[in-house]
């Protein structure tokens, strides 16, 4: 049984400490495991000490999402590949992510939250952020994709021509 009043102190990689309700951390498989298996003292989980590199700003975003989703059912339902859809993001989550668009390093924030959700094992947040990134790519041209993902083309002309030939149906 998890008591709402129980609190957990999380220490981030940049030294900041954030105390949150255990009701929120129950969504994080990593923190729950750290508390139960690793027998941390006083429910204090130093994230940097257990190879989870999450900074203060990212952790605050994670906690904001957890606060909104504190009553979500657990365990998070596993979805098959066929059930995986990018267009079923709840309205609150969409608004939550859109807030980052005002930031200059919006893409970096998204990557940081995805990484944090992965390392802290928060499946709901991970699923939502991955879908958000997929939505950003969906429907874009190849050049736009490269720009969004900040990737450089490393194909030779011949290789690119071959792939374009195979992908000709995508242009229709």
């Amino acid at each position: 049984r998890i008591y709402p009043l129980m609190r957990v102190t999380l220490t981030t990689s940049d030294g900041a400490s954030v105390t949150v309700s255990r009701q929120l951390t129950k969504h994080s498989g990593f923190i729950e495991k750290a508390i139960t298996d690793m027998a941390v003292d006083d429910n204090a989980v130093p994230l940097s000490a257990v190879a989870v590199d999450v900074d203060d700003a990212t952790l605050k975003l994670v906690i904001e999402w957890l606060t909104e989703h504190r009553d979500d059912a657990l365990p998070y339902p596993e979805k098959t590949d066929e059930e995986r859809r990018a267009d079923d993001i709840p309205a609150w989550d969409q608004a939550f992510v859109q807030k980052w668009d005002t930031k200059e390093d919006q893409q970096q924030t998204l990557y940081a939250v995805i990484t944090a959700a992965d390392k802290l094992d928060i499946k709901g947040l991970l699923d939502m952020t991955c879908k958000t990134l997929a939505n950003k790519i969906n429907g874009k041209t190849v050049e736009e994709m490269r720009e969004i993902l900040q990737l450089e083309c490393d194909f030779t002309e011949e290789e690119l021509a071959e792939i374009r030939k195979e992908n000709a149906w995508c242009e229709n």
């Binding site: 997929a134 994709m145 993902l149």
Partner: peptide, 30 residues
């Protein structure tokens, strides 16, 4: 960070969420 700094399991998750056309276009990126 860029896309390729994410663990591969996550990349698969992201790619799985794409539609078919976008997925195939991703073949042309790198």
């Amino acid at each position: 960070l860029n896309l390729l700094d994410l663990p591969l399991e996550l990349l698969y998750g992201i790619f799985h969420s794409m539609d078919d056309k976008s997925l195939h276009k991703m073949r042309e990126v790198c």
